[in-house]
């Protein structure tokens, strides 16, 4: 058994789209190496893309002087990542429900809904510039 704190890795990436893609690919490769199944990898990929793009684009406004920090731990049991941007944050509780009639035709606003739907834990810090997400490995055999 490893130590939860010492086993956490940290990445710092610039606020640009290609950096987000590279980090997503790297973390997904690590999750795949821990034998996460196809459905779990899809869920992790979607939540990670949404969270990192939120941080780089909305949090840091793609400002090249600002970074996104990713602290993560991937074990055979779970994928656990905390993503922090240098923006002003937001109130996730105040986000309008993109499924409501008045928002259904809006172009954006679905990212946090998808993160919550696909991960087992999605928690924001009070200032809204950090999100902690956990996905526990699904027992593929039990799923059939």
């Amino acid at each position: 058994m490893g130590n939860a704190d010492t086993d956490r890795k940290t990445l710092t990436l610039p606020s640009d789209v290609s950096a987000v893609e590279r980090v997503c690919e790297g973390l997904l490769a690590e999750a795949a190496a821990q034998s996460f199944g196809e459905d779990d990898l899809f869920a992790i990929h979607l939540a990670l893309e949404e969270a990192l793009m939120n941080a780089a684009k909305h949090g840091n406004a793609l400002d090249p002087t600002k970074c996104v920090r990713v602290e993560y731990q991937i074990t055979p049991e779970k994928f656990d990542a905390t993503i922090t941007d240098q923006g002003c944050g937001f109130n996730p509780e105040a986000l309008p429900d993109p499924r409501s009639k008045e928002n259904l035709y809006k172009y954006g606003g679905r990212g946090v809904l998808l993160m919550r739907a696909y991960m087992d834990t999605v928690e924001f810090n009070p200032s809204g510039n950090r999100v902690h997400m956990v996905k526990y490995r699904t027992d593929q055999a039990a799923k059939g």
């Binding site: 990929h45 949404e50 172009y107 679905r110 990212g111």
Partner: peptide, 16 residues
């Protein structure tokens, strides 16, 4: 095989 919420936004724009 994979898309993000940005693609959903594009589909709404196309539909409009």
């Amino acid at each position: 095989r994979f898309l993000t919420s940005a693609a959903l936004g594009l589909l709404i724009r196309i539909s409009k």
